[in-house]
Design a protein around this nucleic acid. Structure first.
Lengths: 261, 261
DNA sequence: ACTTGAGTTCCATTTTTTGGAACTTCTTTG
DNA sequence: CAAAGAAGTTCCAAAAAATGGAACTCAAGT
């Protein structure tokens, strides 16, 4: 097993709740011998992948990784464009917006725009949520043929909340609805009292796919505001889809959707 | 030589002008045998460090690195706090603000807040500029004793512009001025027509040091506006310095500085 | 069908990596 | 303040991975 595997494992140890690691952290988290952990951290520091915090024995990701992380947004320029749209919509209406990507059956937040309202939805970048039980997830799954969706869940899934799809048939029905409407919607799924509108989007040139999402408290948003969120999001997404010549984009179709929340 | 070295070298190949690499890119950039380049890229992809663009033979940094990059800001929470201050000041006055760190004799942009004005200074994250010839650089160098500054430049340096320090003595004089005033200033140094105000700041607990900077077109900014930029920046920085108990922070001292631009 | 450029696979040799144990700090605590 | 304990580092021979040259595959372009 290459030392690259170990190095990647170390990087995966970092999270929003673990900003730095020590030799013993690695021993317990990854079950590697102390000697390896010690040498590996030092080697990664010497290579510029990690840096020590002050002159302590704690290691954190180095600036190099921060720089490359920044680059990712532009490398995957679809993310950048989508982020601009979500940022604009979020600014306009004051609710939280974010964009996410799918990795297998999980959805990962990539960028976020916190809303301005006192009651706002807080999401954090890097969070993972199940694809089938979120509007972002379904916006992205809707881009796959049903057969591929089935293949993603060979063992089915368990609905985490009342309003999430209960089984594959229900999921596929909601994906069909998403395709028809041009947007996906969730209500009380991941978080009680929260409603979210998502639109999926892709760039055939790079194979990237992202979901644009606006998330807001269900109680305080009028039907008309919800409609205007849907319109803004869909409009912005459609512009990008035209640019990338995304053939799998589903345009907004409000007449087909129930318009009351 | 460990494969980690090679992997880190690959990561260093990425820049704002190179968002992805191929096997041949590595061969020419790093002079490694094709066979190694091919295997290394595949291994890094398998480990989740890189991802292929679409289904082409091009590799770019993977989402994992983007996530870790995000984390860096919070891991180095000094950066986060400083960024908040610069963001606020930049918002208030409409000019471009950014924060940077020093690595050896180079200054690297970490976060940026583009200004609102039509004529604004554009900087990009990850750009490297020489420390001695920029206000950010001198704001950070001023935190070192003169002897350490000398040690950083054993061979001296060559001034890149008229207004940059010409030799070590001139640099040390300007650092002394920076310490006296509590801020560093540049004019026409890196970019003609651009003036910049920077304040240095550190966190003794982690050893991190950052520079807060506001950069603006020299021609359109009145002396009074310049003063208010200096005040806002210094005030915000002083708050953070108090929090981190930064003993090397130089407080604002407007009386000692010439107040006209 | 031929050429060219790009990428991959093969293989014996060389080089790293591994993990247990001994050793060194640093920290805690009696 | 010394002893115990925890955390980290270094050492070593065995085991595993990396190397690089050459042969091979694949896809365009002519």
């Amino acid at each position: 097993m290459s030392i690259l595997t170990a190095a990647a494992d170390v990087l995966r140890c970092f999270s929003s709740t673990r900003h730095d690691v020590t030799v013993t952290d690695l021993v317990t988290l990854l079950g590697m011998p102390k000697s390896n952990a010690s040498r590996l951290l030092r080697a990664m520091r010497d290579e510029g992948l990690l840096e020590t915090v002050g002159d302590s024995k704690r290691y954190r990701p180095a600036l190099l990784l921060a720089q490359i992380g920044q680059l990712y947004r532009f490398a995957a320029s679809l993310i950048d464009r989508a982020d601009a749209v979500v940022g604009r919509v979020s600014d306009e209406i004051g609710h939280t917006g974010y964009i996410s990507v799918r990795r297998g059956t999980e959805i990962i937040g990539v960028t976020a725009h916190p809303g301005r309202h006192a009651l706002r939805v807080v999401t954090s970048i890097g969070d993972r949520i199940p694809a089938f039980a979120s509007s972002t997830g379904r916006a992205l799954l809707a881009r796959l043929p049903d057969a591929e969706v089935r293949a993603l869940y060979p063992e089915g899934f368990v609905a985490p909340s009342e309003t999430a799809p209960r089984d594959m048939d229900e999921l596929l029905a909601r994906l069909a609805e998403t395709r028809r409407n041009g947007f996906a919607e969730s209500h009380d799924e991941a978080v009680r009292g929260v409603r979210a509108i998502s639109v999926g989007l892709g760039d055939p040139a790079t194979g990237d796919e992202v979901a644009l999402c606006i998330s807001f408290p269900a109680a305080t948003v009028e039907p008309s505001e919800r409609l205007s969120i849907i319109r803004s999001l869909a409009e912005g997404a459609a512009e990008i889809a035209a640019l990338t010549q995304d053939k799998r984009f589903f345009p907004l179709n409000l007449s087909s959707s129930e318009t009351a929340p």
